[in-house]
Computed example of a mutant assay.
Amino acid sequence: MTPPPERKQVLLRLDPAVYEALARWASDELRSANAQIEFLLRRALSDAGRLPSTARPIPKRGRPPATRREEQQE
């Protein structure tokens, strides 16, 4: 089984006021600024009909769900 391709890293220069507004918005939605940027870009691409069908979903963050064995031990 081959490992998934690495996520692409890009340098992004933003006006400080735009970044602060973005960071506040991300915080309100419990996302990092980076995750918020990706979310917004994907939504814009989808709305424009330009999101590639090969784009993988955004990786889930946080604690993984408990397995049955872990649930029984609690």
Rank of each mutant, 00 (worst) to 15 (best):
1 M>A: 11
1 M>D: 09
2 T>A: 13
2 T>C: 03
2 T>L: 09
3 P>Y: 08
4 P>G: 04
4 P>D: 02
5 P>H: 03
5 P>Q: 09
6 E>C: 09
6 E>L: 15
6 E>R: 15
7 R>L: 13
7 R>C: 01
8 K>D: 04
9 Q>E: 10
9 Q>F: 07
9 Q>V: 15
10 V>A: 13
10 V>M: 11
11 L>V: 13
11 L>E: 07
12 L>F: 13
12 L>K: 09
12 L>N: 07
14 L>G: 02
14 L>R: 05
15 D>A: 14
16 P>K: 06
16 P>S: 09
16 P>M: 03
16 P>Q: 05
17 A>S: 04
18 V>G: 00
18 V>W: 00
18 V>S: 11
18 V>M: 06
20 E>S: 15
21 A>D: 05
21 A>C: 03
22 L>E: 03
22 L>K: 02
23 A>F: 03
23 A>E: 06
24 R>W: 05
24 R>Q: 10
26 A>E: 00
27 S>P: 00
27 S>H: 11
29 E>P: 00
29 E>D: 10
29 E>N: 12
29 E>K: 13
29 E>C: 02
30 L>K: 14
30 L>P: 01
31 R>N: 03
31 R>M: 15
32 S>R: 03
32 S>E: 01
32 S>M: 01
33 A>D: 02
33 A>Y: 01
33 A>I: 06
34 N>K: 13
34 N>P: 02
34 N>A: 15
36 Q>R: 13
36 Q>H: 07
37 I>C: 08
38 E>I: 14
38 E>Q: 15
38 E>M: 13
39 F>D: 03
39 F>C: 08
39 F>T: 12
40 L>W: 11
40 L>Q: 12
40 L>Y: 10
43 R>C: 03
44 A>P: 08
45 L>H: 01
45 L>S: 08
45 L>V: 11
46 S>A: 15
46 S>I: 04
49 G>Y: 07
50 R>Q: 14
51 L>A: 04
51 L>H: 04
51 L>N: 02
52 P>R: 01
52 P>N: 00
52 P>I: 00
55 A>E: 15
55 A>K: 06
55 A>H: 07
55 A>F: 01
56 R>L: 14
57 P>M: 03
57 P>K: 08
57 P>T: 06
58 I>P: 02
58 I>K: 13
59 P>D: 07
59 P>W: 06
59 P>F: 09
60 K>I: 07
60 K>Y: 05
61 R>M: 09
61 R>F: 10
62 G>S: 02
62 G>M: 01
63 R>Q: 12
63 R>I: 10
64 P>R: 15
66 A>M: 12
67 T>H: 06
68 R>D: 11
69 R>N: 02
69 R>I: 05
70 E>K: 10
72 Q>F: 06
72 Q>W: 04
73 Q>S: 13
73 Q>R: 14
